[in-house]
Amino acid sequence: MTVEFWAFLFRWLHVLSGVMWIGLLWYFNFVQIPNMGKIPDEQKPAISKVIAPAALFWFRWGAMATIITGLILAALNDYLWNALALGLAGSMKGAHITAIGFGMWLGAIMWFNVWFIIWPNQKRALGLVEADADTKKKSARIAMLTSRLNTMLSIPMLFAMVSAQNPVAYG
């Protein structure tokens, strides 16, 4: 098996897990959050106790699989450190290295937000761990705003990731 084969395999796995992650991120932001207010109170537990915990499981592990396969892919392509240096230092330079580097940093920030901000706050907000009513409310707000931040970051992140595959786009 050549390194090209493994790079192809990991790019495929990276896109699969990325769709799982960002697909669910967009589900939360475009479908669930904007419509919670329209659901009668007695029906809300169907979302908060069943749907949201299941979606959050695939969401956070999708994020984990995406960053792991992404780092492996970058290493296989031999541009991991050059890209993380945004093409400013190291042996590889060029707009596509800078672009993929920006994408990688944005993705890494988003992964951090998922595991260290959104998930701990959602556990309190959804009642998966004990918290008083005030803490629950605050946690739900922090989780929502961080989820929105990740939705915002997903737009330039995907632009950087996809454009890096088309070096001609940068002339």
Partner: peptide, 30 residues
């Protein structure tokens, strides 16, 4: 003041603006 991320259209708008800023930055660096 309300956080602009509380509005979904603002979130998308900010994302597009950030994309344009990054493209200009990539162009400037290289």
């Amino acid at each position: 003041m309300k956080n602009p991320l509380e509005s979904l259209p603002n979130t998308i708008g900010l994302g597009i603006v950030l994309t344009i800023v990054l493209v200009i930055l990539v162009k400037a660096i290289n």
